[in-house]
Each structure stands twice: as C-alpha cells, then as structure tokens.
Design a protein around this nucleic acid. Structure first.
Length: 278
DNA sequence: AAAACCGCCTGTCGGC
DNA sequence: TGCCGACAGGCGGTTT
C-alpha cells in the first residue's frame, strides 16, 4: 500500500497522539511480524517505555523512545497503524496492540497480508536493518538537488522506472508515484536512466518527483484499497491520479489511449504518445 | 550489472 | 453460484 506520502500522513496523524504516551501493555498475536527479537523479548522491552518523537525515513516509520531506542515499523503492502478505543472490537487482521498508561485509546498494528515488520532496537541494532540503513536520498530534502538526480541517472544502466523504485537511490517512491512522476515528466518508463542527459528533462523529472510527492501528502495520500491514516481516514490523492491503474482510458494531455506494460517487475501505465523513450 | 522470477499472505475481480 | 488464475501501494533472495 503505502509510499512516502501515505507513510508521512500516518506519521503526522500519529505523532500528536503518541508522543508522551507510556506503554503499559503490548499484546502480540502474530509473532512473525517482530523481526528484531522474539515476540516476548520485544514485549518486555517496550513495556514501560514512552514515545519521544515520530520520524519518517523513506517508507519506514521511526518511533523514538525515551531510552534512546527506536521502534521501527514498515507497513509494506497492507499494514496500518490505527488509534482505536480499547473496547473497539479487534478483527482477524489485528496483530499487535499497544496500550498506554491513563489512556482509553490504544495503538493497533493491522495487516491483511502480514508482509509488514516491527523492529525494536538501539543504534547498533538498527544498523542490522539493511533496508533502513541502505536508504538513499530523501526526495523532499534539501540534499536532493537536480545535480544529485543527474548523478543518479548518469550512473545507472537500468530503466528509469527501476531507478525510481530503487530505495537505495531515492527513498520512498513506489509504483503509484513512479507512474505519476514519469507521466508528469513526459518520460517513458523503459527509458534507460543514463540516456536521460538533457538538462531540461532532468529538471522536469526532479520537479515531478517533488511535486507529485508533495501533492500526495497535501491530499493525505492515495487510498486505492486499504490505505488509511492512523485515524482510519482515507486519503484523496487517487482522485488526482492521471495514469496509475488507468490503462485503456484517455490521456488527459493528448486524448490518446493509455497503455500498460510490465517493466522492472511491476505494472506500469503510461501514455505512449506523451512519454518519450530515451 | 541487471532483470526476471519466486516467496511471503490475503483478498478481490474477471472469465468461464 | 463456484472455481481458478491473475493481480495488488513492497521487498529480499535466488536464478538467468
């Protein structure tokens, strides 16, 4: 499900609730989701800790604790972090529950497909979480300049779609935003990254990356099937999608028919007329 | 080096 | 209505 804008929206909705709360109990129904230790060790470690801060890195949610350790959550495809009343009935996809001192609400981790992960540890422990430590540039940070993007493109023989999805180069872009970004930048998904050398095209791609991600955040993310923020509210950016899941429909720019192909192992929808192959 | 493929899971949708 | 395969916001591992 969630890409950078959705994860950012979850973090923003979660932070005002969770910061300052102290964990009084942690019930783990699906032990395999805990990747840093056994479920019982995880439970013992988290009870008594309180949350100091909420951060996002790529698609990872970082919940900073008062002892210097961090609870890392990755939602993968169908994970959700939900603030629920304690007496709200759980469902069969509720796998982890955190309750807090003096609080009638609890935090639940739900996940239909159970691909998500929860990981608890200090700095040294987090260094073992390869997906997290190997993340590339934050696309909305100051460090991610047009020059940086130019260098990323120049040094890659891969297709541009694969490069955008490569979390070790740029962190947080997934299949929806990759398609929307490439449409906005008028670049064909199978273009070879290093062939994109025109300064104006690189500039357009850099703008499209930041613009689509920022708009995604502005509209609370894209809710295709499962995605909701921690209050259970859907986003609305899916209404503004121009290509994702729209194969066979008309291009909003040229009126041609949008095409679909498998590229870099993922489905890609694009306009064969507007998007140029480099 | 890159890409294809598979596995991890469950649910949904379209075709027959 | 039911069965069956294809496919889905991710990602890590293996094979080609």
């Amino acid at each position: 499900m969630p890409e950078l804008p959705e994860v950012e929206t979850v973090c923003r909705s979660l932070a005002p609730f969770i910061v300052g709360k102290r964990v009084s109990e942690c019930l783990i129904g699906e032990k395999k989701l805990i990747k840093s230790s056994t479920a019982e060790e995880f439970r013992k470690k988290i009870i008594g800790r309180s949350f100091n801060n909420v951060q996002r890195r790529g698609k990872y949610i970082l919940l900073l604790l008062d002892d210097g350790e961090t609870l890392v959550v990755h939602l993968r495809m169908t994970g959700k972090l939900l603030i629920s009343l304690k007496d709200e009935p759980v469902n069969k996809h509720t796998h982890v529950r955190f309750s807090f001192e003096d609080c009638e609400q609890e935090l639940r981790y739900e996940d239909i497909r159970k691909f998500g992960i929860l990981y608890l540890g200090d700095e040294a422990k987090l260094a073992q979480l390869k997906g997290l430590v190997n993340l590339g540039y934050e696309p909305l940070s100051e460090e991610f300049t047009t020059e940086v993007l130019k260098e990323i493109l120049h040094s890659s023989n891969k297709k541009i779609k694969a490069v955008l999805l490569d979390q070790t180069k740029i962190a947080g872009i997934g299949n929806i935003y990759a398609d929307e970004i490439l449409f906005q930048a008028k670049i064909h998904p199978e273009s070879i990254a290093k062939n994109i050398t025109d300064e104006e095209v690189i500039k357009a791609l850099h703008f499209a990356i930041q613009d689509r991600l920022r708009e995604g955040i502005k509209y609370g993310g894209s809710s295709i099937k499962d995605y909701v923020n921690s209050f259970g509210e859907a986003g609305s950016f899916q209404k503004l999608h121009k290509v994702y899941a729209k194969a066979g429909e008309r291009c909003v720019e040229c009126g041609g028919i949008l095409d679909k192909m498998t590229s870099a192992g993922r489905s890609s929808t694009y306009c064969p007329n507007c998007q140029i192959k480099y």
